[in-house]
Nucleic acid binder design. Structure first.
Lengths: 201, 201
DNA sequence: GTCTATAAAGCGATAGAC
DNA sequence: GTCTATCGCTTTATAGAC
């Protein structure tokens, strides 16, 4: 009996996950308004009814993947931060992380943009994002501070300002990568960061 | 007779301009899919019919303001570039330009984001934007080169890489300004650019 | 050129069968 | 839990009056 219930719960979770994955793809491709519940369901191999059995509304579904994406991004950042030995190594890893996300996972990048635009318009979501971003900035800021004190580094930028710049440049460059692709200089992200944070003396 | 025709043409142009301005506001506020032709017309004080008398479709209207915005942005960049005496002065002016656009004209910034997302999805628009951006980059690159040779400056970044970074950071920081507003350090744009391009020695 | 009316299609969401 | 059918509303776009 316990076994049977577990299987059913697993099946339910699996459907939910399939719907989430389809939603990720569809929202990224067509945007929030452009992606219909019908299309999302169809792409996952279900009907509209299945979506409304798992989520209260289209917006609810959207916010669910927003939540998922938020946690994943924060987790990635933490992983990157925790394994650093030097500031230079840190920036290199950030550059690699940046490129792997852009190239292997175009969908997530476009979805990220969609979230950003959504957050700019919806106050509640904007506030949530703002909090998450600020926390990421603080994490990065602390990590930089630790690395800098270890290396006796100095800069006219505060570590907080550096952290904001790192994340801003990531987003800004990502946009251009998708629009101009081959025209954007390779590994500019890492190079620009090195230049900004490790000023030659 | 000539006078009468001119007046009519002027009226036609005026209506068209009013519709364009309303479209700018509405698309920025609600996004491409979220903004209906009805709302755009109503906000301008007209009915839907008037819109279709001036534009073939909703997308046509969208592309018309995209064109207008493109030209304006390029013009602004040129104006900023042409009046520079030193690299430091150039970066300061860019910082001022950045802030005036963000604060006085939130609408245009959000519209800019909307365009970017649209361009990321529509191949024809993407190509147009790519060309325009590349031209802007070249303009900025040349301006920096001139200023640097005048001041005997050196850097590990090429002027081309600098230009891409300048525009990327502008977009990336703009996003965060709208989401986190008061938490983003003031005048970070100019400061970060100074640090990146004018490395202390 | 601008209006009102309307067509035709798509949307989010719900109801009821299974 | 998932389906089909359907409601009620909004959308883009067109037709015809003025």
């Amino acid at each position: 009996m316990a076994r049977r219930r577990l299987t059913q719960e697993e099946r339910k979770k699996e459907t939910r996950q399939l719907l989430l994955e389809s939603a990720v793809e569809t929202f990224a491709q067509l945007g929030f308004h452009g992606a219909s519940v019908d299309k999302i369901a169809e792409y996952a191999g279900f009907s509209k009814g299945a979506v409304y059995a798992h989520f209260n509304s289209k917006e609810d579904l959207f916010l669910a993947i927003l939540e998922q994406q938020m946690l994943l991004h924060v987790e990635n950042i933490h992983q990157v931060i925790d394994q650093q030995h030097s500031l230079s190594h840190f920036l290199e890893t950030m550059d690699e992380y940046f490129h792997s996300v852009r190239q292997e996972n175009r969908t997530w990048s476009m979805l990220n943009m969609e979230f950003l635009l959504y957050a700019m318009r919806e106050e509640s979501v904007r506030h949530k994002w703002s909090t998450m971003i600020t926390e990421s900035v603080e994490q990065i800021s602390k990590a930089i501070e630790k690395l800098m004190s270890k290396e006796n580094h100095e800069s006219t930028l505060s570590t907080n300002e550096m952290a904001w710049t790192i994340l801003s440049l990531e987003n800004g460059l990502a946009i251009f990568y998708y629009i101009s692709e081959d025209r954007v200089p390779l590994h500019l992200y890492g190079k620009a960061l090195q230049n900004m944070l490790l000023s030659p003396r």
